[in-house]
């Protein structure tokens, strides 16, 4: 067998074995490092971040279907989604946006690319069903 095919097969086996272990463990959420984002006074978010005295707000996206806002480990609000409800939201958002544009310009607004919609849905479904990540953004209010 040529070396190329042998390397490819070995890589494939390693990937499959690793995913098998990940799957057998129940597809746990893989935490990614938290991204800090500093918010200056005067920005719209600043008053919200500072309102409870913590001066920090954490936005967490869990691709297994949860978006959560926390402040000092206390949950403020959460959103639970599935690929289906996410698609419904996109659909509603698109229709409202098109309706608004249509009202403003009094012309028909062309529909968005079906391929783009499908691509977004595939990405959401992939990170919901196959590999799950947790991505956090820590909003820090500057004094």
């Amino acid at each position: 067998m040529p070396r190329f095919w042998r390397v490819l097969l070995i890589s494939l086996i390693i990937v499959l074995v690793l995913y098998g272990i990940y799957f057998a463990l129940g597809r746990p959420v893989i935490p990614l490092p938290t991204i800090p984002y500093k918010v200056s006074p005067g920005q719209p978010l600043h008053s919200i971040i500072t309102s409870d005295g913590a001066d920090e707000l954490k936005l967490t996206l869990n691709t297994s279907g949860e978006i959560e806002i926390t402040s000092e480990d206390q949950s403020l609000a959460a959103l639970n989604y599935t690929p289906e409800t996410f698609d419904n939201t996109l659909d509603l958002g698109e229709r409202l946006l098109n309706a608004q544009k249509s009202l403003q310009s009094k012309e028909d607004v062309p529909e968005s690319s079906p391929f783009l919609r499908k691509l977004i849905n595939w990405v959401i479904a992939y990170y919901y069903h196959i590999i799950r990540f947790r991505l956090s953004v820590l909003l820090i209010a500057l004094p």
Partner: peptide, 10 residues
């Protein structure tokens, strides 16, 4: 649509 949860503290 996605289920939203509002906490009183929030």
């Amino acid at each position: 649509l996605p289920q939203a949860t509002l906490y009183q503290g929030g």
